[in-house]
C-alpha cells in the first residue's frame, strides 16, 4: 500500500507542487490524469523518495519515505520516468539493465537470465551491445521499462508509458499491465492517452493544480463535464459514442460491445430488410 497523508509540497522557486493530498493506492490498476502542470509527476516522485513532503507524510508498505533511501524505496516502487533520456546512463543496453540488479545484490547467473528475459520480451535483443543513446525515442522508453521491470517491484509507476509507441507496443504494455495486476501488483499509470486508459478501465485519480479533484471509476471520471474541463481531457471515442447513442449509463468499454450494440441497432432498422 502507498499512502499519502495530507501531503504538501512546494518547489524551491515557490511553485506549488502538491496541496493537501490524501490518498491510498493498493494493488490493481490506477490511472492519474490532469492537465500539463497539474502535479502528476510531482506526486509520483514522492513515491520512491525522490521528493520528500514539506507537509504530511508518505508511506510505502508502512515505511515512512523520510526514513528510507531512494534505493531502498526503489525496490518496492519502480518508476518509469516521463523523459527516458534522463534515465539512461550506461554504455550498453545490457549494462543498463544489469546495473540496478547488481546493486540489489543478485548473482551473475540470475542477472544474466533476467537480462535475456526482459530483452526478448521487449524485442530489444538486437540492441544488446549498443549505446542506449543511439536508440529511437520509442525504443529508449521500452528499454527504461525493461530496466524497471527487471527489479520486480511491488508497485510499478509508469509516467506516460505510451509515448513514442506504435499500437502493437501499446497492446504489449496493456497486456503487461493486466498481467502484473493479476499477480496482485500495484500499477500506477500517468497518461494523457485517454484511449489507452479507457481500454484498461482503471480507477482514475484526477488532479488539478496540485490537488486531487476526483477519484473513481473511469466511466464516471471521464463523463463529468467539470472534471473533463479541469483536466483538459477529451472523452475517449467509445465513451463519446455511448453518449451520443444514449447508452452512457453503461458505456462501451470495448470495441466488441459497441459492435454488438450497433449490429442490433442496424438489424432493427428498415435498411436490413431492404438489403
Amino acid at each position: 500500500m502507498i499512502s499519502f497523508q495530507s501531503v504538501g509540497f512546494v518547489f524551491q522557486n515557490g511553485t506549488r507542487g502538491l496541496h493537501d493530498v490524501t490518498l491510498e493506492i493498493g494493488e490493481g490498476i490506477t490511472a492519474i490524469i490532469g492537465a500539463n502542470g497539474a502535479g502528476k509527476t510531482t506526486l509520483v516522485r514522492h513515491m520512491n523518495g525522490l521528493l520528500v513532503p514539506k507537509l504530511g507524510n508518505v508511506f510505502v508498505n508502512g515505511q515512512n519515505t523520510r526514513d528510507a533511501t531512494v534505493a531502498q524505496l526503489s525496490r518496492m516502487v519502480g518508476i518509469l520516468f516521463q523523459n527516458s533520456e534522463r534515465q539512461l546512463f550506461s554504455n550498453t543496453v545490457e549494462e543498463e539493465i544489469s546495473y540496478g540488479l547488481k546493486n540489489f545484490g543478485l548473482r551473475d547467473d540470475q542477472i544474466g537470465a533476467k537480462v535475456d528475459e526482459v530483452l526478448s520480451f521487449f524485442d530489444l535483443s538486437d540492441y544488446r551491445g549498443k549505446s542506449p543513446l543511439t536508440l529511437s525515442g520509442g525504443e529508449k522508453k521500452m528499454l527504461c521499462l525493461a530496466v524497471v521491470l527487471a527489479w520486480e517491484p511491488d508497485f510499478l509507476v509508469l509516467d506516460e508509458p505510451t509515448i513514442g509507441q506504435d499500437s502493437i507496443n501499446k497492446e504489449r504494455i496493456e497486456a503487461l499491465v493486466r498481467r502484473l495486476a493479476s499477480k496482485r501488483k500495484g500499477i500506477i499509470i500517468i497518461s494523457h492517452d485517454v484511449e489507452f486508459l479507457w481500454n484498461l478501465q482503471p480507477r482514475v485519480i484526477a488532479m488539478s493544480n496540485g490537488s486531487i479533484l476526483a477519484d473513481g471509476k473511469a466511466s464516471h471520471i471521464f463523463s463529468k463535464r467539470r472534471i473533463i474541463q479541469k483536466t483538459r481531457i477529451v472523452r475517449p471515442q467509445l465513451l463519446e459514442l455511448s453518449t451520443i447513442l444514449e447508452t452512457v449509463s453503461n458505456p462501451f468499454s470495448s470495441q466488441d460491445q459497441a459492435v454488438n450494440y450497433l449490429k442490433d441497432l442496424m438489424n432493427k432498422s428498415p435498411l436490413k430488410t431492404s438489403a
Binding site: D166, S167, I168, N169, K170, E195, P236, Q237, L238, L241, Q255, A258, V259, L262, K263, M266
Partner: peptide, 21 residues
C-alpha cells in the same frame, strides 16, 4: 498490421464492415 495508431472509432467502423455492415 504495422501498428499504425488507427483511431478507435475507425477501428469500430472496420470491424462492422468485416461483419457485413
Amino acid at each position: 498490421k504495422l501498428g499504425v495508431g488507427i483511431p478507435p472509432i475507425t477501428r469500430l467502423h472496420m470491424a462492422l464492415k468485416d461483419g457485413g455492415i
